[in-house]
């Protein structure tokens, strides 16, 4: 199981990287942490002719806060996202989600930008970004543009990334002081892809919740913001929210687990996450 032949470049600047991608067109693929890409190469599931390694590009890593926005560089490793002081203080949802991503050695190498660009529907970061109303910052040869997470994920492994563009950062608005969040994930084994996962945010309003954002993962061809379920939850109707998921989610056919099971599990974790958020805390799984 050896990768097919390809050429490799390690640009030292973002401009160089973009120039390389532009020069080689669709045959070129950016290489971030490689924890999925190198797997597909080894399995000969993909055969790009050029890999453009982003690991030597300066300025793509790290977590900073500017005003009400936390900016996470695309090449920040999963682990470093989760343990960053700013993340722990301002975005505890991300800190809670991080340990669910695969295993330590993968978290040490895989990056949040790579995870966005791959858009695996069963992974944690894309759903967290949806729940947090994050913005994905993209750079192409000509311009930088910002795409809301809601518009970024467009299908199975499909995103708003245009040819020649790369993810350079994820920008997350700092939640309001009355914000609550919840996270739960059901996987057969620790670190496995989720059978059902939910990243949620809301604001407290009296005994209930408002501004509820429910981002499910592992339950469709992309991470899903379940708007009708969220509305029902805001109205205090958990049961209605759970019922609404039947229309909002489209669990994949998968040899080990029936779609009905995944939908059921989604409803269970919605109940659990909603319960914890209603209890008023900032609670994780």
């Amino acid at each position: 199981m050896k990768a097919p032949d390809f050429a490799y470049a390690r640009p030292a600047s973002l401009d160089e990287a973009l120039a390389l991608l532009a020069a080689h067109g669709e045959d070129a693929v950016p290489l971030a942490g490689g924890q999925s890409l190198v797997t597909t190469l080894n399995l000969r599931l993909s055969a790009p002719s050029v890999l453009v390694d982003l690991n030597a590009v300066p300025g793509l890593s790290g977590v900073t806060q500017e005003g009400d926005v936390v900016r996470i560089g695309a090449m920040t490793r999963h682990r470093d996202v989760g343990v960053a002081e700013i993340v722990r203080a301002r975005l505890p949802l991300l800190a809670a989600a991080m340990p669910h991503i695969a295993h330590p050695a993968i978290r040490n190498r895989g990056t949040i930008g790579g995870s966005m660009a791959l858009a695996d529907p069963a992974t944690e970061w894309p759903a967290c970004c949806l729940a947090l109303a994050a913005t994905i910052v993209l750079r192409g040869p000509r311009e930088e543009r910002r795409v809301a997470a809601e518009d970024f994920f467009q299908g199975l492994y499909a995103t708003a990334l245009a040819p020649g563009e790369i993810v350079v950062a994820v920008e997350v608005p700092v939640p309001a002081p009355d914000a609550v969040w919840g996270f739960d994930e059901l996987a057969r084994r620790r670190g496995d892809y989720a059978l059902a996962g939910l990243a949620a945010t809301a604001r407290r309003r009296g005994p209930g919740l408002t501004a509820v954002r429910l981002a499910f993962f592992g339950l469709a061809d992309r991470p899903v913001l379940a708007r009708r379920a969220a509305a029902a939850l805001e109205a205090g109707d958990l049961k209605g929210a759970q019922v609404a998921l039947a229309d909002e989610l489209d669990p994949p056919e998968d040899p080990g687990t029936r779609p009905e099971t995944r939908l059921h599990l989604a409803r269970v974790i919605l109940g659990r996450v909603a319960g914890r958020m209603l209890e008023g805390g900032r609670h994780g799984a």
């Binding site: 057969r188 059978l195 080990g256 029936r258 009905e260 099971t261 059921h264 599990l265």
Partner: peptide, 11 residues
């Protein structure tokens, strides 16, 4: 989980 939930009549 499929097997257990089927046994319980949940799915």
């Amino acid at each position: 989980p499929d097997v257990v939930l089927e046994a319980l009549g949940v799915i």
